[in-house]
Design a protein around this nucleic acid. Structure first.
Lengths: 160, 160
DNA sequence: AATAACAGTTGACTAAATCCACCATATTGG
DNA sequence: CCAATATGGTGGATTTAGTCAACTGTTATT
C-alpha cells in the first residue's frame, strides 16, 4: 500500500492530508484532541481545571504520593502541581499531610469525598470514550492499549 | 485479563495508575504528549509556532485552501488561523491570494521556500517518530493507523 | 433593495505553562 | 560537626495558547 492514510476512505469534502497523513503522531493528536474536547464539554458545568482529574486519580491510587512525584507523572511543572493540590484541598477532595520521615515532603491523600467525585468523573469519561470506542472490538481495544504502552515505554527511554 | 493496564509490565518505581490505566484516552494523551515534546525540542531552534507546521502542510497539500477550511481542519479558531497565516506570509512560506470567484476568500498557496521548509520538518518528524515506532512492526503500525482513523471518524459523528 | 449569511480581521480577555528566585529540610563529604 | 549541595515545596513574573465578541467587506436570499 503506497499511502497508509487511505486505510479508511476519507469522507467526502474532506481535505487532502498530504504527507501529514503518513504520520501516526498526527492521527494520535487528532483523536486525542477530539476525545478531550468531548470530555471537557461533558464536564463543563463543574469547573474542572486542567490536570485536576488525573492528579486526583493518581493520588487516590498512590496514597502518600509527593507533589514532586505527581508533577513528574503528569508531566507538568512543580508550580502547577501546587495550584492543583491547592484546589483539590480547597474543594475537600484531597489533603496534604507532612511526611513523618521527610518533613519536606507533603504526603497527599484523597478524601472520601474525593473518591466519590472520582467515581463520578470516571463514569463520565467512560461514557465519552464509549461513544468512540464502540467502533472497536474488545480484541482491537486491548491491542491498541498494548501498542500505545509499548510506544510510551520507548518514548521514555529516548530522553533519558 | 482483569487489568488491561498490565499488558506491559510497569517499569520499576513507576506509579500505580489505578483506574486511569483502564482508559485509552489516558494512554493516548500520554504518548501524544511525549511525542510532541520530542518534536518540539527537536525544532526548538527555529521558532515554530503551534499549529504552524500542520497548517503549512495542509496548505501545500490543498492549494487554494481558504482560511476557514483550514481553521476547521486544524480545529482552531479563525482568529488563530489569521495569526498563523500572517506568520507564514511574513516568513515567505505561503501567500494569500484573493479568490477570483469569491472575493471574500483568501486562497492560500505554499511557496517554493515553504515546500522546502516542509521537507525539512517532515524529516525531523520522521526521525522523532521512528525513535518510538521502531518498536512496532509495519503490520502493527498500519493497524494502529486504521484504528485511530476509525476512532476519529466516530468522534466526528458524535457532535454533529 | 433589504436582509441575512459568510470570510477575514482585530482586540480584549482567560487560562495554561514555563521560568526563576526563594525557604525549609535532608544529605553528603571534609 | 560544619559547610556545601541537593531536594521538596511555594510564589510571582512572564509568555503563550485559545476563546469571544465586535466589525468590515463580500456574496446569497427574498
Amino acid at each position: 500500500m503506497k499511502n497508509p492514510s487511505r486505510a479508511v476512505a476519507p469522507r467526502p469534502g474532506a481535505l487532502n492530508l498530504g504527507r501529514l497523513g503518513e504520520f501516526v503522531g498526527f492521527r494520535l493528536r487528532r483523536v486525542q484532541n477530539q476525545l478531550s474536547k468531548d470530555f471537557a464539554s461533558a464536564t463543563a458545568d463543574r469547573g474542572l481545571r486542567a490536570g485536576l482529574f488525573s492528579s486526583l486519580s493518581l493520588i487516590a491510587a498512590n496514597p502518600g504520593l509527593s507533589q514532586n512525584e505527581l508533577s513528574r507523572e503528569i508531566g507538568l511543572d512543580k508550580s502547577v502541581t501546587v495550584a492543583i493540590v491547592d484546589e483539590l484541598e480547597r474543594s475537600g477532595w484531597a489533603v496534604r499531610e507532612r511526611s513523618e520521615t521527610d518533613r519536606r515532603r507533603h504526603a497527599l491523600h484523597a478524601t472520601a469525598a474525593g473518591e466519590a467525585y472520582l467515581e463520578e468523573l470516571f463514569g463520565i469519561l467512560e461514557q465519552t470514550e464509549n461513544a468512540v470506542l464502540h467502533q472497536l472490538s474488545p480484541a482491537e481495544l486491548l491491542l491498541l492499549s498494548e501498542l500505545l504502552d509499548r510506544m510510551y515505554a520507548a518514548a521514555l527511554h529516548e530522553d533519558s
